[in-house]
Nucleic acid binder design. Structure first.
Length: 404
DNA sequence: AGGTATTCACATGAAACTATTCTCTGAGTTAGG
DNA sequence: TAACTCAGAGAATAGTTTCATGTGAATACCTGT
């Protein structure tokens, strides 16, 4: 005991003595807003031009921004918005910019919540439930029309909202302009899904995308630039071995140019190196970081799933141990048995089918709909969990579900 | 042999149901004047 | 009579169930040579 305590104390002492490889870790975190945004000059310019009329109290065109994850859409939108707001405040112009992420659960992922959130932004107290949506609309409407002002509404991940609840909200919002006497609203929609516009009603589509902005993926060189710039701020000099940044960039470029991922990779690699008491990062750290990120992603998404989902995953896991091609029915049979053991009320196959589809979305499994001709049509399910992780996940799930 | 038509075993859609959380409304109750 | 309490009606939402319809290609079934 004494010895252990001694050991711990000295560990902590060493920890403090150990010089960190970072000068400022926050620079590499995804919510950090850099002072200068690289390789997006064109988009920044365009967006600024589109929104600028608001400074003269002319209604800016609605804009539709799309590009894959990690291409800087949100960053650019927020940057332009905050600059615009600064100028407007300086010139005493009534301009409000509201940024809402439609994907955040319990925030703006339904029509009611979106409007409620907007109304709250303008100082109304709106309860989370109980009121008819219509009332909230009215309340919001009255509130913004009480004075002459321009409102720019930035809706991030708008595709999630529309997929879930339809395009009625956007329609109402765009139409609102013709009823407002004093105020005016413009919408900036941001979407990851390039095909998103196809789901929209043509009328909504044309009004939402009066202007369109496309964010192409970064290429490897551009990611390198971004990484280098941040690395200078985030790390102490000479921490990075030659080639680390370019390898990092190469990884990310392969993953459709996701800069966020490249930054995360770099950060995690550095943390690992630091923990090993090294004063430089090398390729091994990078590889380990890659693996760690993947592992945590999977483990985390599994642990946070509801019981029914976990049970389904467990059933898939076990079914996959046996034979090669695994179908929905196989999983369902095993799922029912597992439910019997855990005392969980089994859901219908219909529902399990949906759950399997959702797990596919999450990237925990891989499914493909195949036709077995005369013998029907079903999903072929594959686990996309690396083999060395499966045992661990199985144990975790057994614990979560209370299985012996 | 070559060409349709069937058929299977689910997928996929739509609507309706259940349960929970929370508001609003109005009837009934209470306390003070 | 004003203030308060409390039950009931009604909304929003998430997670399901029920019922209905869709679907790709391996087979079964023809057809005419």
């Amino acid at each position: 005991m004494e010895f252990m305590a001694q050991k711990l104390t000295s560990f902590f002492e060493n920890f403090l003595k150990r010089n960190s490889l970072f000068t400022d870790k926050t620079i590499l975190q995804s919510n950090y807003i850099p002072s200068e945004i690289l390789h997006r000059e064109e988009q920044i310019d365009l967006l600024a031009n589109i929104l600028a009329p608001s400074l003269k109290f002319e209604k800016p065109s609605n804009v539709f921004i799309y590009g894959k994850t990690g291409t800087g859409k949100t960053l650019v939108a927020q940057h332009v918005a905050s600059e615009l707001k600064k100028t407007a405040d300086l010139k005493k112009i009534n301009l409000e910019i509201v940024y809402l992420n439609c994907k955040l659960k319990k925030m703006a992922d339904t029509e009611y919540r979106l409007i409620a959130e907007l109304a709250r932004f303008f100082g109304k107290a709106i309860p989370s439930t109980g009121l008819p949506t219509e009332d909230v609309y009215n309340s919001f409407f009255k509130c913004i029309d009480s004075k002459k002002q321009t409102i720019i509404l930035v809706l991030d991940e708008i595709d999630q909202l529309v997929k879930k609840t339809g395009d009625g909200i956007i329609y109402s919002l765009t139409r609102m302009n013709s009823e407002l006497k004093n105020a005016q609203i413009s919408i900036v929609g941001i979407s990851n899904d390039l095909m998103f516009a196809d789901y929209l009603d043509p009328r909504v589509k044309s009004s939402l995308s009066e202007e369109e902005l496309v964010f192409p993926p970064y290429n490897a060189l551009q990611i390198q630039d971004i990484l280098k710039k941040r690395a200078v701020l985030a790390f102490k000099p000479d921490v990075l071995d030659d080639g680390i940044i370019s390898k990092c960039a190469a990884y990310a470029a392969r993953e459709h140019g996701d800069a966020r991922r490249a930054l995360e990779l770099l950060r995690v690699a550095c943390e690992l190196a630091e923990r090993k008491n090294k004063n430089k990062i090398n390729m091994t750290d990078l590889d380990e970081a890659q693996e760690k990120i993947e592992r945590e992603r999977i483990l985390d998404s599994i642990i946070t799933q509801p019981k029914q989902f976990q049970t389904t995953i467990y059933a898939i896991l076990l079914t996959c141990l046996g034979k090669k091609p695994v179908f929905t029915s196989d999983v369902y049979e095993l799922y029912k048995k597992v439910c019997l053991q855990t005392g969980l009320r089994p859901l219908t196959q219909r529902r399990i089918g949906d759950i399997i589809a959702e797990l596919d979305m999450l990237g925990i499994i891989n499914t493909k709909i195949i036709s077995k001709g005369r013998y029907g049509r079903t999903r072929e399910i594959n686990l996309s969990i690396p083999i060395n992780l499966r045992l661990k996940i199985r144990k975790v799930l057994e614990e979560e579900l209370g299985l012996g």
